[in-house]
Computed example of a mutant assay.
Amino acid sequence: MSTVQPSPIVAPMTAEWRDFFALTKPRVMTLVIFTGLCGLLAAPGHVHPVLGFTAILCIAVAAGGAAALNMWWEADIDAGMKRTRHRPLPAGRMDPISARDFGVALSCGAVITMALAIGWLAAGILALSIFYYAWIYTVWLKPRTPQNIVIGGGAGAFPPLIGWIAVTGHITLMPVLLFLIIFLWTPPHFWALALFVQIDYSNVGIPMMPVVAGERSTRHQILGYAVVLLPLTLLPWWLGYTGRIYGLSALGLGLGFLALSAHVGLRRPLPADDAMTPEKRLFKYSILYLFVLFGMLVVDHLATTAGA
């Protein structure tokens, strides 16, 4: 486990259901569930509503299990960071074994259920996503390289791919493009956050990009990823997989993302008392961006299907 020295932790108390729920990182899980649902709804073909609900439930439970394992492993790191020190483990409201077992139970249950209800391809990719986040990103990449979030971004990009497979039973270019969109969206989204909490990462020895490469390099990389992301989001339209509803939405949203990224990439740091810096604006917009982009994908598919 991590070698960062934890802050003093009080004797563990009996954990409440809220603490177990907090281990699943519900805010992050919301975006995971939504993109998985959009992948399912935008896929060609039909799936029984019960099976569709089961697939999305498995994605949600697996994401929660992976998050719990992440918190179990990083309890000492979380204790040293201002924004995470009140989580159940560093705050002493839960013992590590309970958190670990909870994460394993959720992860295994989700994969087994997905295999039995949907199929082994969807279950295999779901298992890969858990392993990717809980081990490749959390244990291996995050404490070792500033490229942690770049490579680790794949963990959060699997849900729409899994949702698509739940309907079609196979992988085509379109769900791969959805995977790549989230994969390239993740670095500018997360680095925008890292820019205004970099002191936390520095204090616990996590080599996030702003800590290792500096603010200037991180800002330039945010802009670079935004430049590449825009044409990638338009590819489904250009290749004929979607219609104008998605295409024009992707163009408008992408230009907004690019404009905010340019403001971050080309600016000088403002005073610390600036309540809403460009980094915070980009971070908040990036969440809205992904929700609306994938939502328009579904709207476009429903409109196209209705007009067929």
Score class of each variant (00 low, 15 high):
179 F>V: 07
256 G>W: 05
145 T>W: 09
19 D>W: 10
96 P>L: 14
64 G>K: 05
290 L>I: 15
41 L>C: 09
120 W>M: 12
81 M>H: 08
70 N>T: 11
59 I>V: 15
235 L>W: 04
49 P>E: 07
108 C>E: 02
19 D>A: 09
13 M>K: 15
287 I>H: 01
142 K>S: 06
229 L>F: 14
274 D>V: 14
24 T>K: 06
228 V>R: 10
212 V>I: 15
32 V>M: 14
125 I>C: 09
146 P>W: 13
250 A>M: 03
39 G>D: 07
53 F>V: 12
44 P>Q: 11
204 V>M: 01
69 L>R: 03
143 P>H: 07
114 M>C: 10
63 A>F: 08
149 I>N: 04
282 L>T: 10
262 A>F: 12
307 G>W: 04
272 A>K: 01
93 R>Q: 04
171 I>T: 00
55 A>E: 01
112 I>C: 02
151 I>W: 10
81 M>Q: 06
71 M>K: 13
267 R>L: 07
1 M>C: 07
228 V>S: 04
144 R>S: 12
129 S>D: 10
152 G>Y: 02
133 Y>E: 11
25 K>T: 09
176 V>H: 02
13 M>T: 15
248 L>D: 06
126 L>T: 01
50 V>D: 14
186 T>C: 10
265 G>S: 05
24 T>W: 07
241 Y>M: 05
55 A>V: 02
6 P>R: 11
306 A>T: 01
23 L>H: 09
244 R>T: 13
251 L>E: 06
146 P>H: 11
247 G>M: 06
124 G>F: 01
87 R>W: 09
74 E>A: 13
236 P>H: 11
282 L>W: 04
28 V>A: 14
187 P>F: 08
29 M>V: 15
14 T>I: 13
117 A>T: 12
218 T>E: 05
2 S>T: 12
173 L>S: 10
72 W>L: 04
4 V>R: 12
77 I>R: 13
138 T>D: 04
155 A>L: 08
221 Q>I: 06
84 T>H: 01
50 V>R: 11
138 T>V: 13
127 A>I: 09
246 Y>S: 05
302 L>C: 03
63 A>D: 13
155 A>T: 06
158 F>M: 06
268 R>Y: 07
15 A>M: 09
125 I>L: 15
199 I>Q: 14
169 G>E: 03
42 A>N: 14
40 L>I: 13
47 V>G: 01
247 G>E: 13
95 D>R: 14
282 L>G: 05
3 T>W: 04
307 G>V: 01
139 V>H: 13
35 T>K: 03
121 L>D: 00
62 A>M: 07
84 T>R: 08
53 F>R: 14
45 G>H: 13
79 A>S: 15
216 R>V: 03
192 A>H: 03
303 A>W: 10
198 Q>D: 06
156 G>M: 05
205 G>H: 05
